[in-house]
Simulated scan of single mutants.
Amino acid sequence: MKTSGLGELEAVLAVARRRSFRAAATELGVSTSALSHAVAALEARIGVRLFNRTTRSVSLSEAGAQFVDSVAPALSTIRDAIEQAGSFRDVPSGTLRINTSVGAAQRAMPIFIAYLQRYPDMTLDIVTEGRLIDIVVDGFDAGIRIAESVPQDMIAVPFGERQRFAVVGSPAYFAQQKPPHTPADLHAHRCIRSRMPSGAIYQWEFERRGEAVRIDGKGPLTLDEPSLMLAAARAGLGLTYLTEWNVAADLQAGTLVRVLEDWTPPLDGLCLYYPGRRHVPAGLRALIELIRESADLQRTQRVSRTRSAKKSA
């Protein structure tokens, strides 16, 4: 790792973002000792300690916080200038950092795979987490979330099919319990509850003919990961509330049964989003173009399926 100049500044910003020398070193692809030496060299040169270090934690000092606030925008401008110059290359290259959720990343994987196959000089750094973060402050080029979660000051590029939530349970569960016909019936059922990244329990949302209902179902299990909810539902522990994308394979295989389908209207789809107040890197522009190509192909396929269905009818 560089021991002066931009390398030291990148090191400080990475440690400030991650609050950990080890995590920052992993992000930058260097050893922890090299990163520590780079930060220490900068601190020695300016004569100020930028971080308070203990055996358990790393935090910015008051001087460090002011330093990061001043340096981060300038370094972002320098990166943009480098990326803008590099955009004149025929083939995009470099690293694209994207923040998203696990579920959104799984749905976007075909796009990511196609992107890396088309642009072998690009590297994707995908960070998945449930909480919604400020992608600019945390050093990401873009984010992927459902449309309603995208901050209003961001440019959003929709992609992927619209989804609905689905209430599902196992055949064994329904062998002992009558299927619910209205959301209110869920109060008589065991529900596998969902904890959101904020720690709050998610209330199941339903709507039909203008009537909107939220249900805080009770049950023996609270989880925060869809694959665990699926496993619990398959085992007959209760009903779960997940997107159609999560439960499609189980519904097709018959391991889960869907109920209350007429109470779950379509949701907004996913969006790639990015800040609009700066130059868009060539690698991000290429990903946006690929997403739009994919969306056009999906629209064509939907039209074709609709026409085929009408002919069959």
Rank of each mutant, 00 (worst) to 15 (best):
residue 228 L to P: 03
residue 268 D to T: 06
residue 60 L to K: 03
residue 126 I to N: 00
residue 87 S to V: 06
residue 88 F to T: 15
residue 23 A to P: 02
residue 301 Q to L: 13
residue 24 A to H: 07
residue 155 I to Q: 08
residue 81 A to G: 01
residue 73 P to K: 00
residue 307 R to Q: 05
residue 51 F to E: 07
residue 235 A to H: 09
residue 199 G to Y: 03
residue 32 T to F: 13
residue 27 E to K: 14
residue 211 E to Q: 13
residue 155 I to C: 08
residue 44 A to V: 11
residue 203 Q to E: 12
residue 155 I to T: 09
residue 207 E to H: 04
residue 270 L to P: 06
residue 229 M to Q: 03
residue 152 Q to V: 12
residue 112 F to Q: 12
residue 211 E to F: 04
residue 274 Y to Q: 06
residue 162 R to C: 14
residue 149 S to K: 11
residue 173 Y to Q: 07
residue 245 W to L: 12
residue 202 Y to T: 13
residue 104 A to V: 03
residue 270 L to E: 11
residue 16 A to W: 01
residue 138 D to I: 13
residue 64 G to R: 06
residue 27 E to G: 07
residue 257 V to H: 07
residue 240 T to G: 01
residue 302 R to N: 10
residue 273 Y to P: 02
residue 90 D to E: 15
residue 203 Q to A: 13
residue 77 T to R: 03
residue 176 Q to K: 12
residue 164 R to C: 12
residue 14 A to E: 03
residue 158 P to A: 00
residue 66 Q to I: 08
residue 128 T to A: 10
residue 300 T to V: 01
residue 53 R to I: 14
residue 271 C to D: 13
residue 182 T to V: 08
residue 107 R to N: 15
residue 83 E to W: 09
residue 27 E to R: 15
residue 287 L to H: 07
residue 4 S to C: 14
residue 310 K to Q: 10
residue 120 P to R: 11
residue 272 L to D: 10
residue 4 S to Y: 15
residue 139 G to T: 01
residue 76 S to N: 10
residue 237 L to P: 00
residue 153 D to I: 09
residue 259 V to F: 11
residue 87 S to E: 04
